[in-house]
Amino acid sequence: MSTDSAPPLLAVEKLTKHFPIMQGVFRRQVGTVKAVDGLDFEIRERETLGLVGESGCGKSTAGRVILRLYAATAGRIVFRGTDITALEGEALRRMRPRMQMIFQDPQDSLNPRMTVGTIIGEPLLEHGAEGKRALQARVEELLESVGLDPGFTNRYPHEFSGGQRQRIGVARALALNPEFIVCDEPIAALDVSIQAQVVNLLEDLQERLGLTYLFISHDLSMIRHIADRVAVMYLGKIVELATSDVLYREPLHPYTRALLSAVPIHDPELESHRERIILSGDVPSPADPPSGCRFSTRCPMAAPECREREPEWRELRPGHRVACHFAE
């Protein structure tokens, strides 16, 4: 983890992504899904920022907007001092190799008709690789770096297990020597005994190649392990951000507290007398978020003020930011 004074690798300001809801024969817009609604944070070089939240909170959309897979509705994305929010054409294409993505389900994100060699080699060809032999050598090197047999280049994805397929996805993401990788639920589809293998691989690669990760997950225990700092999202907003140690020891936002208390711990002694904050109801629709604080409809400590005024995103302690009127 680099020091605070160094310029961040990536910074987002007021990042927003709204999806129109279309209806009828003329596809008229009848509403807006506010999937990501004003995010402010930065990611430092060589760190892992964890982004957690429940399904529909906008964490995956945020990852995709940052990589310019979706166009932002508003706000800025600054990568190494360059505003990339509006880059287009050749300039954007030249940017792409530096930022890559690892997807959740290696079953869906690898083309079943392509061999492993073609899958990993494709980005190399696309971005001007250097002849057939060099390409083959690079593919084998990549396979080796993710712990697979370099002789596997002519095999197809279905010949591999889930964990091995995820390693292929990692090798593809590494092909172009990226600096920054968005890992979107990379272990959610894997068995418990395989998850640790993939997480250890990602940590080794980070160490060796100096990578920076945005690690998106709903698994709070794994995020605690892998992330240096953690951002908690709820309905399109970040509600709390702090270092991993501080966030899990002293969560300030009532949503973070409820979320942490809901995670089962594999210790029957502890579970038998653990206090649980059970939130009532479901997450409201991002097409029609509550006024004021978005968590106010489920918050155990909501006051009238919370329904009227949106809480400010403020730094309560150094490095610990929270959006709640009553975080003190």
């Binding site: 418990v192 998850q195 250890n200 225990s221 605690r224 899990y248």
Partner: peptide, 24 residues
Amino acid sequence: GLLRTLPRLDGTRSERLESIAGQP
């Protein structure tokens, strides 16, 4: 092995997860 590979929400944070090698 299973109990050791799981990261915990409480207690000390391990530097490295223990893993079970191989496949099912």
